Simulated assay, not measured.
Amino acid sequence: MQTPEGVPPWVTFYVGVEDLEKTLERAEGLGGRRVMGPMPVGDVGEMAMFADPDGNVLGLFAERAR
């Protein structure tokens, strides 16, 4: 996907977790900040994003129980 003019390209890595809220709270407790979510991803699961203390954004994904 092309970024808008003036915005450099980026990559977001997603990590699978059991509990998005618990993981986001842990990240915040270690100095990170919530960027997005949790939000549903169709019928597959939920996703969220947080920034570490240096501003690097990481994605989280929790699969929906089947």
Rank of each mutant, 00 (worst) to 15 (best):
M1W: 14
M1Q: 12
Q2M: 13
Q2Y: 11
T3D: 07
T3L: 10
T3M: 15
P4T: 01
P4W: 02
E5S: 13
G6L: 10
G6T: 08
P8C: 05
F13Q: 09
Y14I: 02
Y14L: 09
V15R: 02
G16L: 06
G16P: 01
V17C: 01
V17W: 05
V17L: 00
E18A: 15
E18P: 01
D19L: 01
L20W: 06
L20Y: 03
L20Q: 00
E21C: 06
E21P: 01
L24H: 01
E25A: 11
R26Y: 09
R26N: 11
R26G: 11
A27D: 02
A27G: 08
E28S: 11
E28Q: 13
E28H: 07
G29A: 12
L30V: 13
R33E: 14
R33M: 05
R34D: 00
V35A: 06
V35P: 00
P38Q: 10
P38I: 08
P38M: 06
P38T: 03
M39Q: 13
G42C: 02
D43W: 06
V44E: 13
V44N: 03
G45E: 04
G45L: 08
E46L: 11
M49D: 00
F50N: 03
A51H: 05
A51W: 03
D52V: 05
D52W: 01
D52A: 06
D54Y: 09
D54A: 14
D54S: 14
G55T: 02
N56D: 10
N56F: 11
V57F: 01
V57Y: 00
G59I: 08
G59S: 07
L60F: 05
F61C: 01
A62Q: 13
E63T: 13
E63Q: 15
A65P: 01
A65H: 08
A65G: 11
R66V: 11
R66A: 13
